Simulated scan of single mutants.
Amino acid sequence: MLVGVPKEIKNHEYRIGLTPAGVRELVQHGHQVMIESDGGTAIGLTNEMYQAAGAEIIATAQEIFSRADMIVKVKEPQPQECKMLRDGQTLFTYLHLAPDPQQTQLLVESGATCIAYETVTDKNGGLPLLAPMSEVAGRMSIQAGAHCLEKAQGGSGILIGGVPGVEPANITVIGGGVVGLNAARVAMGMGGNVTILDRSLSRLKQIDELFEGRIKTLFSTTEVLEQQLKDADMVVGAVLIPGAAAPKLVTREMLGLMKQGSVLVDVAIDQGGCFETSRATTHQDPTYVVDGITHYCVANMPGGVARTSTFALTNATLPYVLALADKGPKQALFDDKHLLEGLNVHHGLVTCEAVASALGYQFVAAESALAGSDLQVSA
């Protein structure tokens, strides 16, 4: 199979879909790999390193999209990239379609087979290709929020850990999943007073046991959330419904409960955000203020630590890339029910129920969509 990796074009996005080590694995399996020139240069992965691993360096994304059987990316394709996709081609990347009707429409029109990292599952019910970036984003959320709390950044002027004789910051994390757990771990390590809200009692019990009571756990209700907002200096939104738009848990009216200069960090922004006042921002212009509350809603947070993120992500995605290339996408999807969960769009059909429901498309089960296609079984 001919695998193509274009350079990411989203604002301040320096990650890349394959490392040289990943290229070498694909080449050893008998596949060809094209890397767009300087695709990884910003994080120290040079053209020469990719060539040494067996890749062909390509000058333009247009050539990669026109030639490749499978496109491997990191972030969701931008409109100009969607328009270069073609019928029968496979796209493997993050998609986050539920809050993005334009991208969904363009992918449906392309006829391509579009597999989303964020909805691939594992035997334990986890999301193995989302987890590495959730770990990074969770840890970064506290780092970013701490900066926003500085007075010069418009914050309230609070140091997360305080100092002897001065109270630390109160940090509320909404959601006890991978993002929330990693946010809480870093916040606690920095000396903050940390509370996690979740609706799973078993998860709250796990967190309580893991941190031996050093992090407060509360069952999430509207009343509990409102009380937390009154006391919080920083709130991290870490709620995820796989494939679906994030629920709006904090309304604009609720901002009136918060202290002026407090910070909201919305890690769920890729799925539309879990605060009513959230809108996607970039690393170039990461924050804005609503009713005296600073909002940090960068849609590609892990891109800020692009080298770490690239290696963490590609460690997880490479086995799936190899399976798709070795078997061909149709056979790979049929052979692995967990990879099949990642199929969001195929040959003009929406095969992710959460996306179809959110955007008003007819849902077609992935098995049915594949059975009715003539996508190659083997490459």
Rank of each mutant, 00 (worst) to 15 (best):
Q51G: 00
F65Y: 15
R15V: 10
Q32R: 15
E109K: 15
E8N: 09
K7R: 15
V364H: 06
I158R: 14
L18D: 04
A144R: 03
L333N: 05
L218Q: 15
A232M: 06
A356G: 07
G243K: 10
E367W: 07
P242I: 11
D100W: 11
S66T: 05
E13R: 12
S202Q: 11
C148S: 06
A356K: 03
K330Q: 14
A53V: 05
E25C: 05
H96C: 08
H338E: 09
R139K: 08
D198C: 05
G273P: 04
A131I: 02
G272H: 06
G165I: 13
Q51R: 15
L149Q: 03
I215P: 01
A131V: 08
R279C: 05
G111Q: 08
I142T: 04
E8R: 08
L18R: 01
L95N: 02
G88E: 11
A42R: 13
G30L: 07
D291F: 03
V298D: 03
T217H: 12
L225M: 14
G175E: 09
I171R: 04
V27Y: 09
T172Y: 01
L264E: 02
C297R: 05
I142H: 00
D38G: 02
Q102N: 14
V186A: 07
G39F: 12
G180F: 03
G4P: 04
R279Y: 06
G154F: 08
I57A: 01
E36P: 09
A169D: 03
R252H: 09
G272D: 07
V108G: 04
L240T: 10
Q89E: 12
V33A: 08
D38C: 10
V163T: 14
P79G: 09
T104R: 07
S378G: 01
Q62N: 15
V321S: 08
D87H: 14
N170L: 00
Q89A: 09
V166E: 15
L225I: 14
D270R: 05
P20K: 06
P6F: 05
D208N: 15
L95V: 06
E150Q: 14
E56A: 14
L322F: 00
A169Y: 13
E212M: 10
V377T: 13
T287G: 01
L91F: 06
V120F: 04
A42C: 04
T195R: 14
L318W: 03
H12M: 14
L18A: 12
V377D: 12
S357K: 15
V194I: 04
T217D: 03
H338W: 10
R307Y: 04
V345F: 13
L340A: 12
V350W: 02
L2C: 10
L343Y: 08
A53M: 06
T195S: 08
I293V: 15
Q153D: 00
P20A: 07
G237Y: 04
E8C: 07
F92Y: 11
V267P: 02
V298N: 01
Q80S: 12
Y94Q: 06
G175Q: 07
E209R: 11
V27A: 12
E48M: 00
R139G: 09
A244P: 09
S357I: 00
G125Q: 09
I64M: 12
G138S: 02
T217M: 13
A312G: 02
P286C: 06
G125M: 10
T19F: 05
K75N: 12
A21R: 12
A42W: 03
K327C: 11
E150H: 01
L210H: 13
A184S: 09
A131R: 12
K337V: 13
G360N: 07
E341F: 00
S134W: 03
A169T: 10
A112N: 13
